[in-house]
Nucleic acid binder design. Structure first.
Lengths: 202, 202
DNA sequence: GGGCTGACATATATTGAAATCTGTCAGTCC
DNA sequence: GGACTGACAGATTTCAATATATGTCAGCCC
């Protein structure tokens, strides 16, 4: 008897199948075939095809989250940290789009289906931005009265450079110039930003 | 004999047909039928269906351009002007998306086909932003060493609130809060922004 | 017993033939 | 003579059939 069929093995095989065929063509039967089992076995570990796809994407995103954590430099200024972090994320997404288009397309499908995965991804990354900003507020490099909300604003303002809907523009030769301009503007804003009061504000 | 068939009459009929059927279903034959002529006549005025669609969209966008011009208030501060202008544009696009979904969808199609129309639209509106920023620099309310590039950065940073790819999010109840946060951050940035040197900079 | 199989019902995707649409143009009619 | 028509060729879309995929489950095998 071969090794027991684990969820992890299924995820690895699914990622491989997605890489090869893309989200439109990959089937559960393909995954089972790659593992040498019947497709019924796959359903013992994942209730639906959608759940399987989401689990693979989540694993992929988690790896990105870990990588992004490692970009932060405690000795750098908050502005430098934020710029480097945003640049790294942009490069990462751009490379992913060109070098593993099928996995990227899978993520794109999940975004358009508005499942909870992209929400989870955004929440995590905005959390990292919030930590960078928070450190900047600590050293009085940045000014803000609502770190979380400002972090979300930084995320939204740089949307073009991480939202998959804009991936087609990432090949444009001027995109790096546009990125630099937006990031500079945002960082300048962080040096002296006060949020307008939201409904129910203190 | 009826009135001579003019380009303007064809555009009006096409807009009506697009409103009714949307870009996916509207045909040149429908337009001709609405005008009581054969579809061959339409081709006497517009070389292709795409050209016709673009002409209608251009007319629609031009009306928006004119309306946006009228939002500017010479007595207000540059910051207030910019905020009001961005808010007006956002409201306009949002209303267009819900109240004339088929025309909005037509614009969306042109954007995804990357014809020159959206480029023209963006160039015009970024020009208006540049004028607001320029006035702000004049009064020393804003600081920037490249008005045009900064205007483009403001446009890019607020992308979420005017790019049709994000239209689905415009119904979200928190979207106004997100808008306010981004605009505040951008305006704060304009008060003390210096662009990084681009290649070939002075 | 518990993980696996494989046949099954239902849902989704593919296919190819028929219908419709786009774009052209010789000819009509004022 | 010049704006319009309507028949036409080729491209595209539609629709119904057929095929493939998803998800279930009774039964098999270690």
């Amino acid at each position: 008897m071969a090794e027991a069929l684990t969820g992890e093995a299924i995820l690895a095989a699914t990622e491989e199948v997605l890489r090869r065929y893309g989200p439109a063509k990959a089937t559960v039967v393909d995954v089972a075939k790659a593992l040498g089992v019947s497709h019924g076995s796959v359903y013992r570990h994942f209730p639906t095809k959608a759940a399987l796809r989401e689990a693979v994407t989540r694993r992929w995103l988690d790896a990105i989250h870990v990588e992004m954590e490692s970009v932060l430099d405690e000795n750098a200024s908050a502005a430098d940290n934020l710029r480097a972090w945003l640049q790294h994320l942009f490069d990462k997404k751009r490379r992913s789009h060109t070098e593993e288009p099928e996995l990227f397309a899978t993520f794109r499908v999940l975004v358009s289906e508005s499942c909870t995965i992209p929400e989870y991804h955004i929440e995590h990354l905005v959390g990292q931005v919030a930590r960078i900003i928070s450190a900047g507020v600590e050293t009085q490099e940045f000014v803000t009265d609502d770190v979380r909300r400002t972090a979300q604003a930084v995320w939204d303002a740089t949307d073009m450079f991480h939202h998959p809907a804009h991936a087609a523009e990432w090949g444009n030769p001027h995109i790096q110039t546009a990125f630099d301009a937006v990031v500079s503007l945002v960082i300048a804003g962080l040096r002296y930003n006060r949020m307008p009061s939201a409904a129910g504000d203190a």
